[in-house]
C-alpha cells in the first residue's frame, strides 16, 4: 500500500534524496557568492574610480596608460582577481537562474554546458592577456 511519503515523494523527488556528500556543493557556492559579492563591491568601485573618474576619466585611457598600469604586479593581480571573481560570481548567478527556470533535463544540461564553456574561454583569454602582456611586442 502506498504510504503518505510515497504519495508526496513524487512531488519533490530531489528533496527526499538528501545530498549525502559530506559537504554539499550548494552550501559552498552560497558561501562563495556572499564573500565574492562583498569583495567585488570594493574591486568594482575602485576600478570605476580609477578608470572613469580620476583625471580626465576614460578619455585618458590609451595604450600608454595600460602599459604603465600593467607594469605593476599589483594592478595585474587586481585586474585578474576582479576577472576571476566576476566571472565565477556572474556565471554562478546565471547557473542558478537556469536551474530555476529550465526544467527539461537535456535542455538544462546543454545550456549549462555552454555557460561553463563560455566562462572557461573568457577566463583563459583574460588570464592570457594579463599574464602574457608585453609592451615591447604588443600593439
Amino acid at each position: 500500500m502506498a504510504t503518505v511519503e510515497d504519495i508526496y515523494r513524487k512531488h519533490k523527488p530531489t528533496a527526499f534524496e538528501a545530498d549525502r556528500r559530506p559537504s554539499s556543493t550548494e552550501v559552498w557556492w552560497w558561501f562563495f557568492m556572499r564573500i565574492s559579492g562583498v569583495v567585488l563591491v570594493f574591486l568594482v568601485l575602485i576600478h570605476v574610480y580609477v578608470m572613469h573618474v580620476v583625471g580626465a576619466g576614460v578619455e585618458r585611457v590609451d595604450f600608454a596608460f595600460v602599459v604603465e598600469r600593467w607594469d605593476s604586479i599589483g594592478w595585474k593581480s587586481f585586474d585578474w582577481i576582479m576577472l576571476f571573481l566576476a566571472l565565477l560570481h556572474g556565471g554562478n548567478g546565471v547557473r542558478i537562474i537556469i536551474d530555476d527556470y529550465i526544467h527539461r533535463d537535456g535542455l538544462r544540461a546543454t545550456i549549462k554546458g555552454s555557460l561553463y564553456a563560455l566562462i572557461l574561454i573568457l577566463m583563459i583569454m583574460g588570464t592570457a592577456v594579463i599574464v602574457t602582456f608585453n609592451p615591447a611586442t604588443a600593439g
Partner: peptide, 9 residues
Amino acid sequence: LEILSSRSG
C-alpha cells in the same frame, strides 16, 4: 540540513 542542502532545498 542534509535534506535542505539538496538541489531543491
